[in-house]
């Protein structure tokens, strides 16, 4: 996961499909933003089917992370900056 592995993250869903991960975020979080594949969050470019949905709750972002051999993970990381980036882009 690059630098994300070194961050303080919580895995909410693991080894799932991308679509299930997207649905999980849509159903469980009121504030969601749609971005295109390749959107940069932290120091990674998100991989996924369009649209990629990112949830926001308090000061955390909740997003899908695709690993080629392991499927999709939905992870939650605290970051005021990434929350602000999403809100200001207003997607």
């Amino acid at each position: 996961m690059g630098c994300i592995e070194l961050m303080d993250y919580t895995i909410l869903l693991s080894h799932t499909s991308f679509k299930e991960g997207r649905e999980f975020i849509k159903v469980n979080f009121k504030e969601v933003y749609a971005v295109e594949p390749g959107y940069k969050i932290f120091d990674v470019y998100l991989i996924g089917l369009s649209p990629i949905v990112i949830g926001v709750e308090d000061d955390c972002v909740i997003f899908p992370y695709v690993k080629p051999c392991h499927g999709t993970f939905v992870i939650r990381i605290e970051s005021d900056e990434e929350v602000e980036n999403l809100r200001s882009a207003g997607n």
Partner: peptide, 14 residues
């Protein structure tokens, strides 16, 4: 698999 589709879609975007 679906991960491959995700990469394909991403390459198309970037």
């Amino acid at each position: 698999n679906e991960q491959g589709l995700s990469y394909l879609t991403t390459i198309r975007s970037i």
